[in-house]
Design a protein around this nucleic acid. Structure first.
Lengths: 252, 252
DNA sequence: TGAAGCAAAAATGTATACATAATCAGAAAA
DNA sequence: TTTTCTGATTATGTATACATTTTTGCTTCA
């Protein structure tokens, strides 16, 4: 009857296992570099081994797990360099999307729709000054902006590939937004990022492919800066989704 | 006793199913946009449904299959635009690898090793003039070159992502080499590609990141030209691996 | 006290049984 | 002849049983 019940009925056991497992991993409830026991997972999730197994295979393909030589899977752990590379990869692919959109041209309606999204982001950025809870709203709008931008390239394959690149939560466009929210620099970072949102649309509209590409690459590097800032502050670091998977040099 | 027997023993049923299914798909023995019957597959491969199922899930994640709304999986089909995009994506990521290698610098031994590979390619290209069978050798060396180049970036994540981008056989660096071999332009294409191999290493050695990146992007576009040529000649098209998955506009 | 070996327990990989949902063929009606 | 409905068949999704391998913990020996 409730939305949850409806979801429960609609979702297959395999999907349920996939979602639940992903959450357990990102929350750090399954420790990195440790084998995931299928039996305990069965007990925890209330589904049989078969769907658990399916989910494990999918998560390995996603890059969140790695297979163990003697059988089974373990949660993967990531170094700071891994994360930096992941962000750079996403930036490169989003840059490609922006360039293709600019070069191929986009329908005026699609451009208008994403420009609306930017307007909403503008309001949101302005309001964060008084209302810090706006960050969750920013998170949503920012994710929407990135999805819409990628769609402008009109390429199935590119969407797929960028989705894959953003599977690691700290590589996704929204990865460090919450972590950033507690930093003193937070407002200026928002302003800069928002300016890049506007700039890339301008470039796309003017069919300036190289510029559009360069902007999106630089835009991703905002996340990289946030990563470094987050690593310096425990309070900020705790807000990074999937933070438990990060192998830090020194635990303070 | 034979190598095959040894492999058969070493390979798990799941791996066996994965390899066999991938081959069936690429050979076109499983028709595109048609559901893959698990039961018939079980009979064909001689393994039970469980490993077949695992393989199907993996192949869906790879992008070779798509799930059907009513259950099960079907072989995906690709348009010319899909393939062009896939090649552009690979070129972009290989460009990133080359740039990172140039910017970060590479160990002299690693550079020497890949330069040896280029030397071998040189010999190979020269000999194709008299000996067309050299193309299979070129295929091997070319694949090795690309693998080694990507490794120069020293990034786990990037290797993963490029592997994924090259899963579609026609997106891989070797995808159109055989198709090219029957074209009249084949020798000049080889010479151009080989020059790009040399040039990118020169750029990496001199730490010229932007140049290294641009060269690899352009290098991928050789494959794109080969695609267009191959589409014009049935004889050439038949040599494209996974050609059965390509939805052609007009079948001649 | 430490290491090595062995046995018991538990884990994974595989096969298969079962339930439910989808597909297909055929009959009946328009 | 075409369409629709219904029963039968077959498909997938899930659970579970079984075999083999790995892991663990205890005992024994140096």
């Amino acid at each position: 009857m409730s939305a949850l019940d409806k979801d429960d009925r609609a979702l297959s056991q395999s999907d349920k296992a996939l979602l639940a497992l992903r959450e357990l991993i990102l929350n750090g409830e399954l420790k990195a570099d440790e084998r995931i026991s299928e039996l305990s997972t069965v007990e925890r999730l209330g589904v049989s081994r078969t769907p658990v197994r399916m989910a494990l295979v999918r998560l390995e393909e996603e890059g969140l797990l790695e297979s163990i030589a003697t059988g089974g899977f373990a949660v993967k752990s990531f170094t700071e360099a891994d994360i930096a590379d992941a962000i750079e990869i996403r930036g490169t692919l989003e840059g490609l999307a922006a360039r293709l959109a600019a070069e191929r041209g986009v329908a005026p309606e699609a451009l208008a729709a994403i420009q609306d999204c930017v307007e909403e982001l503008d309001v949101c950025v302005r309001e964060t000054a008084q209302n810090p809870e706006q960050f969750t709203q920013y998170l949503k709008l920012n994710a929407r902006f990135h999805t819409m931008l990628i769609d402008l390239a009109n390429s199935r394959g590119l969407v797929r590939q960028i989705e894959r690149a953003s599977t690691l939560p700290f590589a996704s466009p929204s990865g460090f937004v919450m972590a950033q929210s507690v930093l003193p620099e937070s407002r200026s970072i928002l302003i800069i990022a928002q300016d890049q949102h506007r700039a890339v649309l301008d470039a796309i509209q003017k069919r300036e492919g190289a510029r559009a590409e360069a902007i999106m690459r630089e835009h991703a590097r905002v996340a990289h800066r946030n990563l470094q800032l987050a690593l310096q502050s425990q309070r900020s670091f705790d807000l990074v989704p999937g933070g438990a998977l990060i192998r830090r040099r020194a635990t303070v």
